[in-house]
Every structure is written in structure tokens, then in C-alpha cells.
């Protein structure tokens, strides 16, 4: 798979279409984000496979925003999976990235990864390989939905109780770009206190992610307490889809809640 990406990226770099390619690099036994600026480095480009396929995914769009803020006139390439592409589309609508300055190089996720993510669209619109995994059932959400409402509430409170308020869910989130953060605002929550208020802290973030969360699951992976945040945000996304017929990143349209 990565050979096709390398060929594509080499073309983009050599033709001068992009100034650099933000992807993943394997170096000294570790996989991490890296900006490739010349073709000779592409031997070390990987797609984030470590122990399992795609288990070392990183918030590349977030890195791209950092770069684009400093170099808004330059065009950069970025490695995208289905979720990352949804992220790009949503970030364009929120004016956080300029679509004319981003070249996405897409890869489809293997079925194994799609299943683990319960992803609705485990591939970008355009990808260098044709083999696409199938959309998955939302088993995590439906298993919690099947509980009686009191049990459901108890389950979430039990999960939220584990929170150490590291803000990792926010810090890793490629869609968190606000200058003033809702969960960093004393008007909404008590910022300097532990444990966080139950369930207001987590629900404040869940509500704030409406129209933004593109279901990449990086928050879930970054959580030291293994709180199933992805399941929570999937449920919130389902409600918004039902009420407003909108899922962020699945269309080029703006969020219905983006009224300002």
C-alpha cells in the first residue's frame, strides 16, 4: 500500500505542487508525524501500522493547522484516511484551513481497522488504492442504547468518574481549534478543580463537538482512563443527524449550528 503513496508523494514533491508532505515516518522503532520535504526521505514513510494495521494514527490535520498558520501561502500535502478527509472538509467549512493550499493523499482503511473504529466511511473520496472496507454497524452505541435509561446514566457516570482531567481528549482532537475553549472556561466549568463535575464536564465537551466531531476516535485512544468518548460522540452525532440531517465531514456543507 505505501509504495503507491510514495510514488504519488514523490510526484507531488518533484513537480513542486506541494512544499512538504505531512505523513507518518518510521524512525528508530517509533512511528510519528513527519513533514517530508524531499523525495529521498520517502523510504521511511509508513501508514501507521505498528502492532496492528493503522493503530498508530496521529492528528495530522492538527499539525497541518500549525504549519498553515505560519505559512499560509504555501501548499502542503497530507496523508488522509476517511476520518481525516472528513476532518479536512469540516475544517474548510470552519475556515481553519484553505482548501486551495491542501493536497490530500488518501488511503482506505483495512476492514480490521474499520471494524475496530465501527467507521461509517472507512475511506476517503479519492484514494491511491481501490480496495475499500465496508461501513460498519454501530454496535457500541446500540449496546448502550439497549440499556434502561437509569442503567445508561449510571454507566456514563461510572465512566466519567475515571476522568483525571488531563484534557488529552481536547488536546489531541484535530477539530479542537477554538481560541477560547468551552472546557477551559470558568463560566461553564470549574477549571482548576478535580475531579471534574459529573457529568457536566464531559457533556459540555460532547455538546461542543456537535457539528465538529468527525469520528476519528483519537480522543478515545488518548484517554488514560479509557473512557469510551468515541461512543458518546457517535451517539451525539446520531442525534444531530436525525434532527438536522447533518454529519460533519460527510458533505461540504456548513454545520446547521454554525449560524454566526
Amino acid at each position: 500500500m505505501s509504495e503507491n503513496i510514495k510514488t504519488k508523494v514523490a510526484e507531488l514533491l518533484s513537480s513542486g505542487q506541494i512544499k512538504g508532505f505531512l505523513g507518518l515516518r518510521s524512525n528508530e522503532g517509533h512511528i510519528g508525524p513527519y513533514l517530508f520535504t524531499n523525495e529521498a526521505e520517502l523510504d521511511s514513510l509508513v501508514v501507521g501500522d505498528w502492532k496492528n494495521r493503522g493503530d498508530s494514527r496521529y492528528p495530522l490535520n492538527k499539525c497541518l493547522i500549525n504549519i498553515a498558520c505560519k505559512y499560509p501561502e504555501d501548499t502542503f500535502g497530507v496523508l488522509v484516511r476517511g476520518c481525516d478527509e472528513r476532518g479536512l472538509k469540516a475544517l474548510y467549512t470552519w475556515n481553519q484551513l484553505n482548501p486551495n493550499k491542501v493536497v490530500a493523499v488518501g488511503i482506505a482503511c483495512p476492514q480490521e481497522l474499520a471494524d475496530a473504529c465501527e467507521c461509517l466511511k472507512p475511506y476517503p473520496d479519492e484514494c491511491v488504492d481501490d480496495e475499500k472496507a465496508k461501513a460498519c454497524e454501530q454496535k457500541a452505541v446500540s449496546s448502550i442504547d439497549a440499556l434502561a435509561i437509569a442503567d445508561r446514566f449510571a454507566l456514563w457516570i461510572r465512566e466519567f468518574t475515571k476522568c483525571v482531567k488531563c484534557y488529552g481528549c481536547r488536546d489531541v482532537c484535530p477539530m479542537c481549534f477554538c481560541k477560547e475553549c468551552s472546557v477551559g472556561s470558568d463560566d461553564l466549568i470549574h477549571t482548576g478543580q478535580l475531579p471534574p463535575e459529573m457529568p457536566i464536564f464531559h457533556l459540555t465537551r460532547a455538546v461542543h463537538m456537535i457539528g465538529r466531531c468527525i469520528d476519528c476516535g483519537l480522543c478515545n485512544e488518548a484517554c488514560p482512563a479509557d473512557i469510551p468518548l468515541r461512543t458518546l460522540y457517535k451517539k451525539v452525532a446520531d442525534i444531530i443527524d436525525k434532527e438536522f440531517q447533518y454529519r460533519p465531514g460527510y458533505t461540504d456543507a456548513k454545520s446547521p449550528l454554525n449560524v454566526l
Binding site: 517509533h30 512511528i31 493503530d55 498508530s56 492528528p59 488531563c166 488529552g168 485512544e221 488518548a222 484517554c223
Partner: peptide
Amino acid sequence: IPSKTSPVNKGKL
């Protein structure tokens, strides 16, 4: 950005 391949923190901080 926490390293996912670090055996100590596995992508968490």
C-alpha cells in the same frame, strides 16, 4: 503529541 509507540504511555499523557 504523545508517542503511540512509546511502551510507557502508549499515546497518552
